[in-house]
Lab assay of single mutants.
Amino acid sequence: VTTYKLVINGKTLKGETTTKAVDAETAEKAFKQYANDNGVDGVWTYDDATKTFTVTEMV
């Protein structure tokens, strides 16, 4: 189990959260659900070296 981080660069919501998951795919599903629940829709990137997902909403 690995800890993954999500950085949110939203128009109205900004911040970070973490989740523990067995792999990046599982973490991504959890983060996308979290973003969807919070009304964040944007471009996703993932950095495997730092285990960090970033979602950026276009203005």
Score class of each variant (00 low, 15 high):
residue 2 T to S: 11
residue 2 T to R: 08
residue 2 T to E: 12
residue 2 T to L: 14
residue 3 T to L: 13
residue 3 T to I: 14
residue 3 T to Y: 09
residue 4 Y to F: 12
residue 4 Y to H: 02
residue 4 Y to A: 00
residue 4 Y to E: 00
residue 4 Y to N: 00
residue 4 Y to G: 00
residue 5 K to V: 10
residue 5 K to F: 13
residue 5 K to G: 03
residue 6 L to C: 08
residue 6 L to E: 00
residue 6 L to F: 06
residue 7 V to Q: 07
residue 7 V to W: 05
residue 7 V to F: 09
residue 8 I to S: 03
residue 8 I to E: 01
residue 8 I to K: 01
residue 8 I to V: 09
residue 8 I to G: 02
residue 10 G to I: 14
residue 10 G to H: 07
residue 10 G to F: 14
residue 10 G to Q: 05
residue 11 K to T: 10
residue 11 K to V: 12
residue 11 K to W: 12
residue 11 K to Q: 11
residue 12 T to M: 09
residue 12 T to V: 13
residue 13 L to A: 07
residue 13 L to S: 06
residue 14 K to H: 11
residue 14 K to F: 10
residue 15 G to L: 14
residue 15 G to Y: 15
residue 15 G to K: 13
residue 16 E to W: 15
residue 16 E to M: 11
residue 16 E to R: 07
residue 16 E to F: 14
residue 17 T to H: 13
residue 17 T to A: 14
residue 18 T to K: 07
residue 19 T to N: 04
residue 19 T to E: 05
residue 19 T to I: 12
residue 19 T to Y: 13
residue 19 T to D: 03
residue 19 T to M: 14
residue 19 T to G: 04
residue 19 T to Q: 07
residue 20 K to G: 07
residue 21 A to M: 03
residue 22 V to F: 13
residue 22 V to T: 14
residue 22 V to E: 08
residue 23 D to Q: 04
residue 23 D to M: 04
residue 23 D to Y: 04
residue 23 D to P: 01
residue 23 D to F: 04
residue 23 D to G: 04
residue 24 A to G: 04
residue 24 A to T: 10
residue 25 E to N: 10
residue 25 E to C: 10
residue 25 E to R: 11
residue 26 T to P: 02
residue 26 T to I: 08
residue 26 T to N: 08
residue 27 A to S: 02
residue 28 E to W: 15
residue 28 E to L: 15
residue 29 K to F: 07
residue 29 K to S: 08
residue 29 K to P: 02
residue 30 A to K: 14
residue 31 F to K: 00
residue 31 F to S: 01
residue 32 K to Y: 05
residue 32 K to H: 09
residue 32 K to V: 06
residue 32 K to D: 02
residue 33 Q to R: 12
residue 34 Y to N: 02
residue 34 Y to I: 06
residue 34 Y to T: 03
residue 35 A to N: 04
residue 35 A to S: 05
residue 35 A to P: 01
residue 35 A to D: 01
residue 36 N to D: 06
residue 36 N to V: 12
residue 36 N to S: 11
residue 36 N to H: 13
residue 36 N to I: 15
residue 36 N to K: 15
residue 37 D to L: 11
residue 38 N to W: 12
residue 38 N to T: 07
residue 39 G to R: 07
residue 40 V to E: 02
residue 40 V to T: 03
residue 40 V to A: 03
residue 40 V to W: 09
residue 40 V to P: 02
residue 40 V to C: 04
residue 41 D to V: 15
residue 42 G to C: 02
residue 42 G to A: 02
residue 43 V to L: 13
residue 43 V to N: 07
residue 44 W to N: 00
residue 45 T to G: 06
residue 45 T to P: 00
residue 45 T to F: 08
residue 46 Y to P: 00
residue 46 Y to G: 00
residue 47 D to V: 05
residue 47 D to R: 03
residue 48 D to R: 07
residue 48 D to C: 05
residue 49 A to D: 10
residue 49 A to L: 09
residue 49 A to M: 13
residue 49 A to G: 06
residue 50 T to N: 07
residue 50 T to R: 06
residue 51 K to Q: 10
residue 51 K to I: 03
residue 51 K to W: 06
residue 52 T to N: 02
residue 53 F to V: 01
residue 53 F to P: 00
residue 53 F to R: 00
residue 55 V to T: 02
residue 55 V to W: 02
residue 55 V to Q: 01
residue 55 V to I: 08
residue 55 V to E: 00
residue 55 V to Y: 02
residue 55 V to L: 11
residue 56 T to N: 11
residue 57 E to M: 06
residue 57 E to S: 07
residue 57 E to Q: 13
residue 57 E to D: 09
residue 58 M to P: 12
residue 58 M to K: 10
residue 58 M to I: 14
residue 59 V to T: 13
residue 59 V to G: 15
